[in-house]
Write a protein that binds this DNA or RNA. Structure first.
Lengths: 207, 207
DNA sequence: TGTTGTGAAGAGGTTCACAGCG
DNA sequence: CGCTGTGAACCTCTTCACAACA
């Protein structure tokens, strides 16, 4: 399987979101042009993104909504449920634990961890917060696929090392620190402060 | 002023983070190679990023930490405080309102808004949640520069229209919807579900 | 006719390699 | 000698333009 470009995956994710809207509205087919307008890109881009996986559109008509949804779900790896743990039961961790959009997409929280004795044992959206020291023994039972890391920057690398040792191969990192992981482990980092700085940089230079 | 590439801004933000660590440890100078190792990139990339704004390194030595910090802060628009409002006092909005890392970087919450009568009036980290209908009249007093939008997808565009009418020219969008804004307004979108799908896509295709 | 699929051209960002300088 | 600054090569992603086809 050829490597999919990261910007392309992000767009495919957006297409899928709109296709699901179309399906809810009983729209049978959709053209690259409509999809482009909805996702804020160009029709050529949409066709290039899709043609990477084969040609499943009908010329003069567009793409069949249910068919395209099924293919995109396959491409994005949504053909199966994914289980994830949240490490760090702070404000952001708690918010993510309760984020309904995850469940709707087939991502399920299996456990929430923290190091803080004051938080351990507390209930969080149906999950009792566990001691992070338990992660290694819990993993074989819960078999989590992904770890969402929402701990302070100082402990982010140690947390990453731990979840890798637990056999987890996907990390969504909200700590403001780059993580070193072995080959075969995928990391996505989201840095809130950086996002604001991208804005301030743009605003400062705009005038 | 030439336009700065988005990936470059993100790296500059990371460099700044590490330079602040260096300053705290009294390190006087730092080489492109060290900075690259810390930020997870290459020394050539670091030098290219920096040379875009002029040449302020010392050959054979590296960059002076305090000097480079000052320049990066200027480039990233951190030479002044920024005021932002949060629209949407749900879980994510609340978490962001209390995120200390923002304040440390010079980003200050001036108000939190919601449409839900049950939330309006409640205290949130020192802010009384206000009715979003007040935003237009509040803006001239609070002069917010940025709006963080954490409302459901369905109301995201209407919210964006409102904050633009209020004179706000920077938007950090956490709603899973692309926003249409007039020329001169900058939008950064963070989509949690997309981030997880980038991971699931990578994990699904990896083996 | 309307819309896809795609080679070719273009733009933008990254890496290389080395001259230049402290 | 070591490390910066940078033109040139390289690569990746985007846009264009049009032949192919339902």
């Amino acid at each position: 399987m050829k490597r999919i470009a990261d910007p392309s995956v992000r767009r495919l994710s957006a297409y899928l979101r709109f296709l699901e809207d179309c399906q809810a509205r009983q729209v049978p087919t959709v053209s690259s042009d409509e999809l482009a307008r909805l996702a804020g890109t160009t029709s050529a881009q949409v066709r290039k993104d899709l043609s990477f996986f084969g040609s499943f559109g009908k010329r003069g008509l567009g793409y069949e909504v249910p068919d395209l949804i099924a293919r995109l779900r396959g491409i994005l790896g949504l053909g199966r449920p994914w289980h994830f743990v949240i490490v760090g039961a702070g404000k952001i961790g708690s918010a993510l634990a309760q984020y309904a959009a995850f469940r709707e997409r087939g991502f399920h929280v299996v456990a929430v961890y923290d190091t803080d004795a004051a938080k351990i044992g507390a209930a969080l959206d149906g999950h009792r917060v566990r001691d992070v020291a338990q992660l290694l023994e819990d993993a074989p039972l819960d078999h989590p696929d992904i770890a969402v890391i929402t701990v302070p920057a100082a402990s982010a690398q140690a947390t990453a090392d731990l979840v890798v040792r637990a056999g987890i191969r996907g990390i969504l990192n909200f700590a403001p620190a780059p993580l070193r992981v072995p080959h075969g482990v995928t990391v996505q980092t989201v840095n809130m402060a950086t996002e604001l700085e991208v804005l301030s940089s743009a605003l400062a230079h705009h005038d």
